[in-house]
Computed example of a mutant assay.
Amino acid sequence: MLTFNEVRSIFLSYPELKETQSGDRYSYSVRNSIHRGKLIAREIRCNQDGTFYGYISSKYMSTQTKLKYVDHTDSRGMIKIKTFSNLELHNVIRDAIFSMGHVAIDDSATVS
């Protein structure tokens, strides 16, 4: 399981994202979203044991992409990322960024 610091580093590795902090919670938005809503990740927060919890929005994802995350999606359309591996987190972030504007994503942040 990833730690909060690892998760934050992964989000910060994407230049397309802008980080904001409110208290002990972090959120990430897509700088050049074609949609009115720019927020893709919210409530990213560190637990006392160094682990984290948080959500990624599936609002603008295609139906096919949403199906990839159906087992992790709640009734709000938010994908719970707490149990995601490094690769799974990179994949969902890339899918969320793509859904926000079909922009090319810098592959230097990709993990194999």
Results as ranks from 00 to 15, higher is better:
85 S>Y: 14
28 Y>A: 02
7 V>I: 02
76 R>I: 00
69 Y>T: 11
75 S>V: 05
89 L>R: 14
78 M>D: 11
96 A>N: 10
88 E>L: 14
42 R>S: 08
30 V>G: 02
43 E>M: 08
8 R>Y: 05
70 V>C: 13
12 L>S: 13
98 F>A: 08
103 V>E: 07
91 N>C: 00
39 L>I: 02
83 T>N: 02
65 T>A: 13
24 D>W: 03
94 R>C: 12
7 V>F: 01
106 D>A: 01
69 Y>V: 11
109 A>M: 08
13 S>H: 12
8 R>H: 06
72 H>W: 10
67 L>D: 14
19 E>D: 09
80 K>Q: 07
43 E>G: 07
98 F>M: 09
72 H>E: 08
9 S>Y: 00
81 I>Q: 09
61 M>V: 08
47 N>G: 00
66 K>Y: 11
78 M>A: 04
17 L>P: 00
65 T>N: 10
19 E>L: 11
25 R>A: 14
67 L>N: 15
22 S>C: 12
65 T>Y: 03
65 T>K: 10
98 F>S: 11
99 S>K: 07
32 N>H: 13
105 I>Q: 02
98 F>D: 07
2 L>W: 06
60 Y>G: 06
36 R>V: 13
36 R>F: 15
108 S>R: 02
61 M>K: 04
78 M>I: 00
29 S>A: 13
88 E>D: 12
21 Q>H: 04
51 T>C: 00
50 G>K: 06
47 N>W: 03
26 Y>Q: 04
30 V>N: 03
45 R>S: 01
97 I>T: 05
37 G>V: 01
49 D>P: 05
9 S>D: 12
106 D>Y: 00
52 F>W: 03
33 S>G: 10
35 H>W: 13
100 M>H: 04
20 T>K: 15
5 N>F: 07
109 A>G: 07
101 G>L: 03
37 G>D: 12
35 H>D: 05
86 N>H: 14
48 Q>W: 02
95 D>L: 09
41 A>N: 06
105 I>F: 02
37 G>N: 10
104 A>Q: 15
67 L>K: 15
20 T>Y: 07
59 K>F: 08
13 S>E: 08
106 D>H: 07
28 Y>V: 04
11 F>G: 07
31 R>T: 14
11 F>Y: 12
55 Y>G: 00
48 Q>N: 05
18 K>M: 01
104 A>V: 14
